[in-house]
Design a binder for these strands. Structure first.
Lengths: 211, 211, 211, 211
DNA sequence: AATGAATGAGGTTTCATTCAT
DNA sequence: CATGAATGAAACCTCATTCAT
């Protein structure tokens, strides 16, 4: 059998191997989930997709739920990474960068099954408390980040207003996901143009009065 | 019990009973679905929740899918009913009515598990073609309605721009659902104020240039 | 309980009604069985076909098995009635009558689902002891009849030879049923001609030696 | 255990094992079917009889129907194999060989539950189109074989006459199956003697006139 | 360590039978 | 008496998980 043991690297390569294997499994699972949802992705499908035996998967993840949790965590981490880049941008390019991000967001959400996957994650969060915790945690971080961005762009305004405005921006991004599923055929170019327009207003208009 | 029609309407009581039972089952299913998703809502759970035997459910619905479809249809019909009211409003009160609706929308989405259910519906639509058809159908109608509203409020603007603007409004509403799940603790009052502000802009600002 | 009390006629009409209803149910069942076999004929199907409620059927038959048994008994009684007619025929027309019966037999077996029904009965007999008893009983009677016919036509021959010859004739009739299912498109005219030919030989050739 | 091939034939043992298991399941199913028919042979009964869990059966057969089909195919293949041997016999021993086969046929049909199983197969064919196709296919081949045998033995005679004669021979064989169920106690020795006698006549008598 | 065959609980659905109305 | 809604056992099938090899 392939016996990579022997002396030195003994903890390091296996460790790396372990993570590589885990990622490999996650990738396979992702393909399955995109194809047929969390529920439709059976362990045997995953194993087949990963070209592994079922048994070995259980060496890398305690159970199916753990895989799902890892996927969710992965997914959210990726998103958070994007946000984090903005944090260090100088104020004068911030808005334009944000608007440029819109294009990436639109392309991403309207491409392939990205939106469907995100939906899966959310639906799963609605009933799996562990997943819910992960999502909520990620969301809290994002929200704080969003609020800090808002504050930089609109120094005036109460805390509640900032929070609300950030929430609305969140709605647009999250809603985009649903619209991508419900109406994938939309003219993306026109959509993007309007979105830029709207977002610029959103970020720059004075905080609303008590209306 | 209050049975106001024993005289001629033979067939009426059974009919009424039948629909009452169907609704009873739908309600039980709703509770189960909200608790554990369409998938986790097993027929035995539903039966237990409805305090019925499993078999009797099949007298009222052909199969589980039919129950799901009924729930989805119900859910969307409700929403569509709201929209339809607007159609006949005179132009001068239209915008204010729309903005007033926001309050109801916010309350609805942020209340109980309404959002979670809607999410379930969407996730199910991603897999179940019949459900997808129902959702898509409802969505198409809503979209047309939305566009006609947009046109009334903003007579200028290309077809694509109208569609895009309508889509963004859709994003806000749909996204609200997700935000309600991810961040249910938001200050609704402030949120509503900002939303009115934003929506007013959305409906009245001139169509964006090619930006 | 069935209360045939009160003097004369009063038990007669209900009794007749009872039998008429039973026959009505049997007829409906027969149609169902022909359409989808004993197993596929559910009580609700039968009830629907008979335009009755399920419950009432249980007033006329103890359970589904009783219906099946009645059908089997009916079916075999009919067949036996045919045979019985022959018993009283004078010897000189016996053979020709038998041969003429062939035509009826062929038409009957190759028509509609008669053969399929008979098969159902036999298959049911293979696993339902009560049905098996009915079939066996009917069969014994038929066999005795067949043997007595053989004896009249071929006075020579041992008892065992008579029995064997009768059994072979039985094979041809029973086998016809299976052939009717397996190869319904056969040229019936030619088949009948050959059958008459063969049967005549069968009934007239001297008993075989110990071969 | 006796494992004669550990060296190169990788895949051979599993393969062999797989087929052995399949046969094991088929055997268990056969016992169940003979006892209570295809319908009464539930998957749990089969599993119990095979001393397996229900689930494992599905590793070897896609579903219950596949098991039934395998049984039917097995059953008919066996029969066809017999027929095929005759094809290559020289004309002068053909008739005697056929007559000798009678003994085997009688023994087979009157032994154990072979006939009951065959009946099950036919009854199943009446309802299950896949099974019907298998049976029909087998039957067509047998019929052609039968006709070619007839032609060798009786060169004169029209096509329709050949077909009819072959059909009658089929009736005797098929009918034997039913008689074996209905009257298993028959004196087989006498029956066989008469059968040889009758079949010899059947194969050699001149084609009947239009009678 | 890896395999994948086996397990068995649990899912959806059907249907003979009963019983309140 | 008749009805047909209700029952619940049992059918087929799936799949997360385990464990002998």
């Amino acid at each position: 059998m392939n016996n990579p043991s022997t002396l030195k690297a003994q903890g390091s390569k296996p460790r790396q191997n372990r993570e590589a294997r885990q990622q490999h499994i996650l990738d396979a699972t992702l393909r399955c989930v995109r194809r047929s949802g969390f529920h439709g992705a059976s362990m045997s499908h995953i194993a087949a997709e990963a070209k592994m035996s079922v048994g070995v998967i259980y060496r890398y993840f305690a159970n199916k739920e753990a895989i799902i949790e890892a996927i969710v965590a992965n997914d959210l981490a990726e998103m958070r990474a994007k946000f984090a880049e903005w944090e260090n941008l100088p104020d004068d390019v911030l808005l334009d960068t944000l608007l440029d991000t819109l294009e990436m967001a639109v392309e991403h959400k309207y491409t392939g099954d990205n939106a469907a996957l995100a939906l899966e994650v959310l639906a799963e969060a609605a009933r799996n408390p562990r997943v819910a915790a992960i999502v909520e945690n990620a969301d809290t971080q994002e929200r704080e980040l969003g609020r800090s961005l808002c504050r930089r762009l609109m120094p005036a305004g109460s805390e509640a207003q900032m929070a609300a405005r950030g929430e609305i921006i969140g709605m647009i991004f999250d809603g985009m996901m649903i619209r991508a599923i419900s109406n994938p055929a939309i003219d993306r170019k026109a959509l993007l143009a309007e979105l830029r327009h709207v977002m610029r207003v959103l970020f720059t208009m004075p905080a609303g009065p008590q209306d």
